[in-house]
Amino acid sequence: MKTIIFLSAFVLWASVGQAQEVTKLNEVKVNYSPQITEISQNGSVFTIKIKPRGVNNFVSNPIGFLNDNFDIHKFIDLVSTEEDDPDEEYDSYEVQLRSTKGFMIANYDGEGHLISTRQNFKDIVLPYPLRIQVYNANKGWSMKKNKYTANTKGVILTKAIYNLTLINGKQKRNIKINALDKDYGVVAKN
Results as ranks from 00 to 15, higher is better:
M104N: 10
L12K: 00
K172E: 15
N31T: 09
F6L: 12
R118N: 14
K2H: 08
V55Q: 12
E111T: 15
T3S: 08
I76E: 10
D91A: 14
E111F: 02
V59S: 04
I177Q: 10
F75D: 07
I50H: 01
T3I: 05
N107W: 04
K189A: 02
K74I: 07
K153I: 14
L126W: 00
W13K: 07
W13F: 13
K172I: 13
V28G: 06
S92K: 01
S15I: 09
K24P: 03
L166K: 06
G43Y: 06
K170D: 11
K2W: 02
M1V: 11
G54H: 06
F65P: 05
N67R: 12
V79E: 04
Q41P: 05
L97E: 06
A150W: 01
N136Q: 14
V95M: 07
K122E: 12
D183T: 10
N120E: 12
N178K: 09
V11M: 09
S15F: 04
I132H: 00
D68F: 05
R118C: 05
V59K: 04
I39L: 11
N163K: 08
A14E: 06
K49C: 04
G140K: 08
I76Y: 03
T47S: 15
F6E: 06
I167L: 14
K51M: 03
K153V: 15
I50W: 01
P127E: 10
P52Y: 00
V125F: 03
F103S: 14
I48Y: 07
L114W: 00
L78M: 08
Q18A: 15
T158H: 01
Y108I: 02
W141D: 05
G17W: 12
A106I: 09
G110A: 01
G185K: 14
P62W: 02
I4D: 08
T165I: 11
V59E: 09
K145C: 07
S92N: 15
E38I: 12
G154M: 08
N42K: 13
F10M: 14
K153R: 14
Q119D: 12
G110F: 01
G185M: 11
D68R: 12
N67A: 10
N178I: 03
Q20M: 11
S60G: 00
L126M: 15
I124V: 03
K172H: 03
L66R: 06
M104S: 15
I39T: 14
I63N: 06
V186D: 06
V134R: 08
S40D: 14
F70K: 07
T165E: 15
R53V: 07
L164T: 02
K147M: 03
Q35K: 11
D123N: 14
F75H: 04
Y90K: 08
N190E: 13
R53K: 07
I177P: 05
T149C: 03
I132T: 10
N136I: 10
N26M: 13
N163G: 04
R53M: 09
T117C: 09
K144N: 09
I48S: 05
Y148N: 14
S15P: 04
K145G: 04
T23L: 11
I175A: 07
T23P: 01
G185C: 05
V28H: 13
N168D: 06
P129E: 11
G140Y: 02
V30D: 06
S92W: 10
E88A: 06
I124R: 04
N151A: 09
Y32M: 03
E82Q: 13
S15A: 14
L130F: 00
M1R: 09
F46L: 10
G17N: 03
M104D: 15
I167N: 13
G185E: 14
